[in-house]
Design a protein around this nucleic acid. Structure first.
Lengths: 301, 301
DNA sequence: GCCAGAGTTTGAACACAATCGAACACGAGT
DNA sequence: ACTCGTGTTCGATTGTGTTCAAACTCTGGC
């Protein structure tokens, strides 16, 4: 669901209709979210019903569903849509996925290209990592350990071996925290750890908002060969309360062009590779953009 | 299972018919799923019966069966269809979810009433338990341990302290399995365990389809004071492969009136309390009250 | 065991209804 | 000027009901 490039836009409704209860979604994004909610609730629902309830044309609902399908949230059927991802899996959290959706998708795809061939992976938490998981090609020989329920759900329904940390579930983020979670993630040796960050600066390194989350992530980085950080530009220069790791320990950072150039330079001076997604393939065929170069760049594992 | 690459459609019904009960499947996909369910349930069923029950022409049923046969789910016979698949075995998750949705809701609400005041609870897996979680009043002083990602997600977003087992995530059901999951759930002492069941019989006790799930659930029951089983009527008398616990260890069973009376009696004779939700009426809204009967009355089989 | 005829069931063909997607136009926000 | 979301139109696709001839099952008689 991506609401694509940018957001909102008011619905106009040339269509004249009687008074409606819902009325709710004035914004397109909101409507999409509610559409998803409905599908998740009812397991299966018709286009006509949704169109009536939201007071929009069926074509619009179809477009919404198409998007939701593209992003893996629902499955379209003739006349409506269903979801196997039944698990009403926090539609609320998915709402946050909407923010900066396009940038996140670009970063996620780029990062996915950097992890081709990796066999054992630690995945962190946050919407950026969730997006990464979404675009991660499913491979049977891939093993993932994560403290995030969202990531586990996303990959668990696909052909990936997923291990979830276990322990107390943190309320808003739905992440596993606490001693047993830390202990669990520390038990595994991984080729690559892919994590997000609340803040990312040359001086303070990778930082998180919640110290319990930070503890778990730090545990997950303990036995990994390579740390890959994915973060949109807004995180550059930001410093959150709990430091996860100093910047020197990071192998590669994937971000987008909105990232502060000065901060990037400082980080690169520390010897960290910074990959700016969406810029490299400008000379290539738009369709192939990025992909070609990426595969050559990636380390052979 | 999708019974087809893509599907179906809304039923139109030029055919004029009497009042309808199920109403459920407006989407053709849903109907196909339900058709499959019926075939799996009864082992063998006639086209005419299905046509009547679903209020569509026999030709449509034939077309549905043809598809299901093409996909290997059923075998067509003259006048109907059969299947070698045993009961709900192998019938996809979506089908199971759609099936008996209303009954499950009624049961869930009733069961929630039976757990007021409980402080520490083990929750099992399956759609019935998920429904239970949905209707469980959130209380801060409630602590829940579960191997189900869906349950953890549902409760984690609310004001409940949730602990998830951890370990390998089973692909279709999104449940934690394996040694570490078993070990995790065994660590906690709970007042009540609320579990579902694939099968429930006086002779074979509570049974599950997947032995790894069964192991984990068994672990969760190890240190609990009271075992509450919730299961819709279709589970009565059914026996799945792995036994979780013998019937004697169960404290209470909550089901609906579609449950086989004979089996209920046998279970009660073993000293188990069986609560049939929806019959005592007083606690339910009159509106829903009627519905229970309707939906359950169907399936005279 | 075999056969013929009655009653069912089936599937192809047709007609109609519903849904879908591409293309275009409009309006609002940038 | 450009983009994005939306509604509308229209041809294509898909699902459904009906008809009818062919195929099938069953039964009774030999």
């Amino acid at each position: 669901m991506d609401t694509e490039g940018h957001l909102p836009v008011k619905t106009r409704q040339t269509m004249v209709t009687g008074p409606q209860e819902e009325t709710s979604g004035v914004l397109a994004v909101e409507r999409r979210l509610k559409v998803l909610e409905r599908v998740a609730e009812d397991q299966a629902i018709e286009v006509s019903t949704l169109a009536r309830d939201f007071q929009v044309s069926e074509m619009t609902i179809r477009r919404d569903l198409r998007r939701l399908e593209r992003d893996g949230f629902v499955r379209r059927t003739y006349g409506g849509a269903t979801t196997h991802l039944v698990r009403t899996f926090e539609v609320g959290a998915l709402a946050r996925t909407l923010h900066h959706a396009k940038e996140k998708r670009i970063i996620a795809k780029r990062a996915a290209e950097l992890t081709v061939g990796v066999r054992a992976m630690f995945l962190g938490i946050g919407t950026t990592v969730e997006n990464f998981a979404r675009y991660l090609p499913a491979r049977e020989d891939l093993m993932v350990i994560t403290p995030s329920l969202a990531v586990a759900s996303l990959l668990g329904t696909r052909n990936v071996r997923v291990i979830i940390a276990g322990g107390l579930v943190r309320q808003d983020e739905l992440t596993c925290v606490g001693a047993s979670a830390v202990e669990a993630v520390r038990r595994y040796n991984t080729d690559t750890a892919v994590i997000g960050a609340a803040g990312l600066s040359a001086r303070r390194g990778i930082t998180e908002l919640d110290d319990r989350d930070a503890d778990v992530i730090r545990g997950g980085l303990e036995r990994t060969e390579r740390i890959l950080v994915i973060a949109d530009g807004s995180k550059f220069g930001a410093v959150a309360m709990s430091t996860v790791v100093p910047i020197e320990q990071v192998s590669t950072i994937v971000t987008d062009i909105s990232a502060d150039a000065g901060e990037i330079e400082r980080i690169e001076q520390a010897g960290i590779e910074v990959v700016v997604a969406g810029t490299e393939g400008s000379l290539l065929h738009p369709a192939e953009n990025g992909r070609v170069r990426v595969t050559t760049v990636r380390r052979p594992a």
